[in-house]
Nucleic acid binder design. Structure first.
Length: 308
DNA sequence: AGCGAGCCCTGCGCGC
DNA sequence: TGCGCGCAGGGCTCGC
């Protein structure tokens, strides 16, 4: 659910609270939220208790907090993925656990004092884990938030996201053209480009007037580049508006909703007129979820690209 | 390679 | 009021 903008809003809110803070205690209320952790809950708790947090980093929809034990460079990180319904909430130290809280942390910050971080997740598709940090292959910073060129092992296969300064646009376009699949599938493939989910895929495709089932091999390079531009535009705009909230499921670290749902042009807009041409937006089943598009503006084009 | 299906889960809104 | 169904911002694994 949370896509790049929503995860970035969380990272941004978390950063000042966790940077330099020490984890005093960890409480695992539901072990299912540790499914990505390689080891029992006791191990998770033990590796985090007393550790110091260096900051908050994000690549695509993955978020992690590098940790260090006195003096050493970070070798491990607390990794979080929000899945469909995960939240990270900053709370007062004495606050009661909100419903569906799965993991709680008590932090001590040298400036802000004691504070609590709650990982809340209705569907438990999200998870937390302590994971080893590995050097990035290209030597660049692993993600947004810290100039640290190491990445959790379980995030290493995730491509850089299109807002990352080290995102290799030429390599992306080359790989996209070489794929034998359709365009929405490719946009959702986190090993090709990360951070895009069902909402922003539909929004970017609408903006670029590309049909979701357009074969990637038939997408000309200029159109592919234009689509990538639209992806960036929609991600940035959503970020500026605090992300997309439909209900209390997605909120920032303080429990507040984002406003981008008012700006959606395709996602969830079935039955309403296309903002460009007035034709009604339709919803079709695709990859076991909905695809929303304008049947007039977004048609499959049988135009071959010039590549041989 | 790529793709569909199945799996991990809970809760909401809807129609009957 | 109650129940069953379909729906939901994701991702991993398996077998074809």
């Amino acid at each position: 659910m949370p896509e790049l903008p929503e995860v970035e809003v969380v990272r941004n809110g978390l950063q000042p609270a966790v940077t330099g803070a020490t984890i005093e205690s960890v409480e695992v209320l539901d072990e299912r939220s540790l499914k990505r952790h390689d080891g029992p809950a006791e191990d998770f708790v033990e590796r985090l208790t007393g550790a110091q947090l260096r900051g908050a980093v994000r690549r695509g929809k993955f978020l992690w907090l590098p940790i260090e034990r006195v003096g050493d460079a970070p070798a491990e990180a607390l990794v979080a993925h929000l899945g469909m319904s995960g939240q990270v909430l900053l709370r007062e130290p004495q606050a009661e656990a909100a419903p569906l809280t799965r993991i709680r942390f008590a932090l001590a910050h040298p400036v802000h004092g004691p504070l609590r971080v709650d990982f809340v997740d209705q569907r438990i598709f999200g998870s937390m884990a302590v994971d080893a940090l590995l050097p990035t292959r290209d030597g660049a910073a692993a993600g947004f938030g810290l100039p640290l060129a190491s990445i959790p092992s379980q995030v290493a296969h995730i491509a850089r996201d299109p807002l990352d300064p080290a995102f290799d646009e030429r390599a992306f376009l080359r790989r996209l053209a070489a794929k034998r699949t359709t365009i929405k599938r490719a946009l959702l493939d986190q090993t090709l480009v990360s951070g895009i989910g069902n909402i922003y895929a539909d929004e970017a495709l609408w903006a670029a007037r590309v049909h979701y089932d357009q074969p990637t091999e038939s997408l000309s390079r200029p159109r592919a580049r234009a689509l990538l531009d639209e992806v960036r535009i929609v991600l940035r705009r959503a970020l500026d508006e605090g992300g997309t909230s439909f209900d209390a499921q997605y909120v920032n670290v303080n429990g507040a909703s984002g406003y981008f749902s008012r700006s959606l042009r395709a996602y969830g807009q079935q039955g309403t007129p296309c903002a460009r041409c007035g034709r009604l937006i339709v919803r079709e089943q695709f990859m076991n979820r909905g695809s929303h598009f304008c049947p007039r503006c977004q048609r499959i084009r049988r135009v071959r690209s010039s590549t041989a």
